[in-house]
């Protein structure tokens, strides 16, 4: 019994030390300058290092929000209250990201400034955060209880239980859709959209978008919606053109 206790203690000590070494540097409060501002202004985007004089704008026909049948929010919770924020950034239709991916040139990328995702009312806010690949995302906990974060698509995002107010930075070094969840509140879901382009924006609640400063060339235009997924179309811009490109999710 004693031998078992010693073995277990040694094993746990190793795990604890391992965790300490792996744990991110916690930025002590107050939050880094601008993080709160970013939370309220999730439109913050990188400044494109290569700019042109074309622009693209249009309307995204937003998907119908309700279906008769949907995946439930929680398993076996006996109808326990599942919190969900009323913040507009929790609404799927405020999380439509439009991005333009150059096909004729490789634009230099700058990290998205002050990119942050907070956990509030058991909700990731915003529930979709677009960043350029290589950016650092700050994770906040604004609830009065612990949250954790881990990603099934980028396994090195595994932030343990964090008390309210703590901020943890993580570098996003892989492009694509990075899904986030909380180990404690399994109904929570969020997405980091890690993009290899500096040309992107968030559509407004009515589905309108506009991206300015685009250099001449051909682009793959991608639209991402949290529930409805991705739509793609190829466009070409030149000579100070202002192109209207609508995408309608309501049509197949």
């Amino acid at each position: 019994m004693l031998r078992m206790a010693i073995l277990m203690t040694t094993f746990l000590s190793f795990l604890y030390l391992g965790a300490r070494q792996e744990a991110p540097a916690v930025i002590p409060g107050p939050h880094p300058a601008g993080v709160s501002a970013v939370r309220n202004n999730p439109e913050a985007e990188p400044v494109p290092l290569l700019r042109g004089d074309n622009e693209i704008y249009g309307l995204i026909g937003l998907p119908r929000p309700r279906k008769w049948v949907a995946r439930g929010h929680a398993y076996n919770k006996d109808g326990s209250k599942v919190m969900h924020s009323d913040d507009p950034m929790a609404a799927p239709n405020r999380n439509v990201i439009v991005s333009l991916h150059p096909l004729d040139f490789q634009p230099p990328l700058s990290p998205t400034r002050e990119a942050a995702i907070t956990q509030k009312d058991q909700t990731f806010l915003p529930c979709v955060l677009p960043v350029t690949v290589g950016s650092t995302v700050y994770f906040l906990n604004e609830d009065q209880f612990v949250h954790s974060i881990y990603s099934l698509t980028l396994r090195n995002i595994a932030i343990g239980r964090r008390p309210p107010g703590e901020v943890h930075p993580r570098k996003i070094n892989k492009p694509g859709v990075i899904q986030l969840t909380c180990d404690i509140h399994t109904h929570m879901r969020g997405v980091i959209l890690s993009l290899e382009t500096p040309y992107f924006t968030r559509a407004d609640a009515d589905g309108r978008y506009r991206i300015r400063g685009l250099p001449d060339g051909r682009y793959r235009m991608e639209v991402f919606h949290l529930d409805a997924g991705k739509r793609m179309v190829e466009v070409a811009l030149s000579g100070g053109q202002a192109l209207r490109q609508d995408i309608d999710y309501t049509k197949p």
Binding site: L12, Y150, R155
Partner: peptide, 15 residues
């Protein structure tokens, strides 16, 4: 006692 692996999101060990 449950320990979530910090280098492998979604994985745990427990006793």
């Amino acid at each position: 006692i449950r320990y979530s692996l910090p280098f492998l999101g979604g994985a745990y060990l427990a006793y």
